[in-house]
Design a protein around this nucleic acid. Structure first.
Lengths: 224, 224
DNA sequence: AAAGTTATGTGACTTATGACACACTTCTCC
DNA sequence: GGAGAAGTGTGTCATAAGTCACATAACTTT
């Protein structure tokens, strides 16, 4: 499979490009480049202009932010097939976090200028994207309120499920970081995790959480 | 001033159209129609297709939702010069609330099909709109978390300031509705308002709040 | 291996807010 | 003008979660 065809598949998996036609998708993926990163190499930093969208061909990229006190906080892990920077490439705003390769990686790169040129030539695609962004706006405002108003166990369960999608059942994250994610105190997170450990939903290790019973966890995430 | 020119002014005040060029704006506002509503007349209802964007030329339109228990809840008041339905017109999703004229009103109407046709002919405008939607997505996700995590006094003060922008210093709203707005119990709202009354920040009447000291209120809204 | 550093576990206390209960007031409508 | 509805004011209590204060455990560095 050609590089471009591979990229097209990744694009297609992302909701933002999911309903483009095969022909549109092909013309778009023809604009891509690739880029190699060594282990630990920095892809971009907070404040850099958002001049491209990336797809992970192989490897892993960590999205992280340097908190004001100097401690680093990992926000997300992008693995093979993941796409990131879709919003940045559309509006050109500066990056709001850092991205570093967690291992030697190869990325697809779609440059902003190329993408905008494409949209200008294909206004129908632009309109599809507009509809999609609107959907995201609605979705965001519905979900957001909903999720912040949930009690901590629900928020925590949701976050763990999301992390499980990236890590599998062995989530490697500190309870402190989890606390920041769900907007809660570290102690509260710990107490909840302990309770779940007693219920055999998970096991705890230093810097690591082993999900034992995803069924129960997702049930909690759905708020019964 | 022509009807179209008047509409152009309203569009220009809305961030979504603020950075269109004068020529683009003019071509866009040429697509508008007008519509008259009698007092109490229904403009659209929840579930109707979002097939147009509206601007209030004169009069007042209430955006409200019928809560599941049958009680109506006013979400917003659109007065002269206000624009609403910008998102609906872009993505065509169904209305999520009802709109009723609070008095005899005249509205500018920009139909979805006309607007999409315009975007297709002017891809540069589509791209500007895309950038704007992206900005809104970012803004929303930043603000949302921030605002839901604030203590009630801050959320309440913010909401009052926002309402003051529509109503002036005499906000006419029940404490119950205020409670729904800020996501708090009616009683908690009442207690906070009482405290502020003692501090001479505001006065209370049945169904009405008189803002006495906006300076202090905005200070609270900024969270000191 | 000793010392320091980071992550985790847990108890005691405080605080904000929701929930319920009820009195009181002002409107509305017949 | 009386009855009921809708809005408001307040007391009491329960609860979730934050804060503080340590104890302990696990990794790191020298």
């Amino acid at each position: 499979m050609s590089k471009q065809a591979e990229f097209a598949v990744i694009l297609k998996m992302n909701p933002m490009f999911a309903d483009l036609g095969a022909d549109e998708l092909q013309r778009l993926s023809n604009l891509c480049h690739t880029q190699h990163l060594g282990n630990g190499e920095v892809l971009f930093q907070k404040g850099d202009p958002g001049d491209a969208l990336f797809g992970v061909r192989r490897g892993q990229v960590r999205i992280e932010t340097g908190a004001s006190d100097g401690s680093r906080l990992t926000l997300n892990f992008m693995g093979s097939g993941d796409l990131f920077g879709e919003v940045a490439v559309l509006d050109g705003q500066n990056r709001t976090a850092d991205a570093t390769a967690g291992e030697a990686s190869e990325l697809f790169v779609l440059r902003r200028e190329d993408f905008l040129g494409f949209l200008e030539r294909e206004p129908k695609v632009a309109i599809k994207i507009i509809a999609l962004l609107c959907q995201r706006i609605r979705w965001q405002s519905e979900r957001m309120e909903e999720s912040m108003l949930q009690p901590l166990p629900v928020r925590l369960a949701r976050r763990l499920c999301a992390l499980a999608a990236d890590f599998g059942s062995e989530v490697h994250i500190s309870q402190e970081q989890l606390g920041v994610f769900v907007g809660a105190a570290r102690e509260s997170v710990n107490r909840q995790l302990q309770a779940w450990r007693k219920d055999a939903i998970l096991d705890l290790q230093r810097g690591r959480i082993l999900l034992r019973n995803m069924t129960k966890l997702t049930a909690i995430a759905r708020n019964e």
